[in-house]
Nucleic acid binder design. Structure first.
Length: 279
DNA sequence: CAATATACCTGGATGC
DNA sequence: TGCATCCAGGTATATT
């Protein structure tokens, strides 16, 4: 589900209600996620700790606690976080619960279990955060995300520009839905080799990326099947999608039917009239 | 090193 | 109704 906007919507929703809360218990379903969960370690590190703030790097949420420990949560494909009363019965696919001293519980629900939950203990958190940041690509809302920088990063890259945008080690936060939408808005053909785009195209991609991601955050994210923000509400950006999932429907700009292809194993939607390869 | 394939999971939609 | 098949917002790892 979650690309940068959905992760950001989750973060903002939790921040409102959660900061200042103190952890008093940890529950785990016993089912393994992408990473191993050590309940005893989580309890030892987090119980009595107060949540200071929540940050985001790429699609990771960083829950910062008072004694410097950081709980890192990645939502994978179907992960959702919610804050509910600890008396509420657990749902199917609930996998982790952090009970807070105010009677609320932060719950992680993840049907497909591609999500991950990692604890950075206080003594290595700084180092781990540095390593994560090194490993992840540039943030779309950062200064370094601009036309010339993107063109530079794409030098000698033969992979399709869509695959390039979705490569998290190069650019953070852009997944399949937003890659499709960004390339349509920039009028760039998804299969064009990244290294062959001209500066004007990269500038356009940088501009529309920020615009689309920002609008998606403002709309509460995109809910196709099951994304819910931390307050339990769906997003509404799917109402503003131009091409994703729109096979056969008219292009909003020229009415040519949208086509679906597969690129790098992922569904790819485009308007063959508005998006043409430029060499 | 870069590009591509595969694996990790569950469940909804589709077709027979 | 049942069953098989395909598909889904991500990413680490292996293979070419």
């Amino acid at each position: 589900m979650p690309e940068l906007p959905e992760v950001e919507v989750t973060r903002l929703g939790l921040l409102q209600q959660l900061t200042g809360g103190t952890v008093c218990d940890v529950w785990w379903s016993g089912k393994r996620l992408r990473t191993e969960i050590k309940t005893a370690v989580l309890k030892n590190s987090l119980c009595t700790q107060q949540l200071v703030t929540i940050d985001r790097r790429a699609k990771y949420l960083l829950f910062r606690f008072s004694q410097k420990a950081v709980l890192v949560i990645h939502l994978g494909m179907t992960g959702k976080l919610s804050l509910v009363s600890f008396t509420r019965p657990r749902d199917k696919h609930d996998h982790l619960g952090l009970t807070l001293s105010n009677g609320m519980e932060l719950r992680f629900n993840d049907c497909r279990r591609f999500g991950s939950i990692i604890l950075w203990p206080h003594d290595t958190a700084e180092k781990q955060e540095y390593l994560l940041s090194q490993h992840e690509g540039i943030e779309p809302f950062s200064r370094e995300f601009n036309g010339p920088a993107l063109q530079h990063l794409a030098r000698k890259r033969t992979a399709a520009v869509k695959t390039f945008l979705m490569n998290g080690r190069i650019i953070a936060g852009i997944g399949n839905i937003y890659a499709n939408e960004i390339l349509f808005a920039a009028r760039v053909h998804p299969a064009q080799p990244a290294g062959t785009l001209v500066l004007e195209q990269w500038q356009q991609i940088a501009d529309v990326s920020r615009n689309i991601l920002q609008k998606a955050i403002a709309a509460g994210g995109t809910t196709i099947a099951d994304f819910l923000g931390a307050n339990g509400n769906p997003g509404y950006f799917q109402l503003q999608l131009s091409v994703y999932g729109k096979k056969g429907q008219p292009c909003p700009l020229c009415s040519t039917p949208i086509t679906r292809t597969v690129l790098g194993g992922r569904a790819t939607f485009l308007c063959s009239s508005c998006q043409q390869q430029r060499h």
